[in-house]
Simulated scan of single mutants.
Amino acid sequence: MPSPGLRRRVEAIPGVPLPHGILGGCVDIVDIEDMHELLGVEWMSLGCCPVRDTGWCSEESPGAIVPPKEFCSPEAEFAEPHTIYAGAKCSTMGWSYEEAVEQVTATLELGEQRAIEEAFWRDKLAMRAVDLTPADGPVSMAAGVAALEGCLAETYGGIGVLHVPAGAAALLGCCNVLSLVDGTPRTLTGNCAVLGAGYSAQNTGPGGIPADPGTAWLYISGPVLVRRGPVDIIPDRAGPAIDIRLNDLRVLAERTVVVGTTCAVCAINVTLC
């Protein structure tokens, strides 16, 4: 084996984010201009109230009582901010400030999707979901998706998002539960699917309870919207990046995101056998 001193420095091996994660084609992404939105947002729910039908009195049913029409109050919903970051540290003899900035920027670009998925699963999906798992325990993947889509259809009625850990996604293809439609994974009913590495890292049920070995948690929600702020490099110049005590160079790339969904969130535990 050649001596390390003889090795030639070359460009790093580039990476590409997973194509069907939360920043893929399934979710709307807004690069915001109003920085106040990075403090969190709230809105009145739309489409969560049911649309009902009513009958008419006719000559065939004189005196029939038509039930009174029902009214529904939209609920206030909200989404809270999360700041994701990548940090790089190296000896000042090994890297320049510009090289450190390039490193953390590329790292954030590759890994931000997973970090967003982890935060959204942990702080929103797992905290809001209704557990549909039967008393007998985990169900098959196909049965789990069917139950989730039924839950969403009953409470929302529009196209929603199926949230699947990347480690379980392959099992949805073997039963034709998912297929690619214009490059986006979708179910037969039209719901799109996020196949997330961050979801695999969490894989917890409602309340944050970890999945048992051989099982996974699936969630479904209404549409998801990701608001993103700009990427900030900290510090913004070379001088403050140097820790003179250790002669280290430290640089951060940060971005604040606000991820929200609407109406019901349902969850179910499935078997991976």
Rank of each mutant, 00 (worst) to 15 (best):
V27N: 02
V27K: 04
I29K: 04
V30Q: 04
D31G: 03
D31P: 06
I32S: 10
E33I: 10
E33L: 13
E33Q: 10
M35Y: 00
H36M: 11
H36I: 00
H36N: 13
L38I: 06
L39Y: 06
V41R: 15
E42A: 09
E42T: 05
E42I: 01
W43Q: 14
M44D: 02
S45K: 12
S45W: 03
L46D: 14
G47R: 15
G47Y: 13
G47N: 14
C48L: 12
V51N: 05
V51W: 00
R52K: 14
R52F: 04
D53F: 08
C57T: 14
C57G: 14
E59P: 09
E60C: 06
E60D: 07
P62R: 09
G63Q: 13
G63F: 06
G63C: 12
A64M: 10
A64Q: 09
A64E: 13
A64W: 13
V66Y: 03
P67F: 06
P67I: 08
P68I: 06
P68A: 09
P68E: 02
E70G: 00
E70N: 07
F71T: 12
F71P: 00
F71D: 07
C72F: 12
P74R: 03
P74S: 07
P74C: 04
E75G: 05
A76D: 02
E77Q: 12
E77G: 07
F78Q: 08
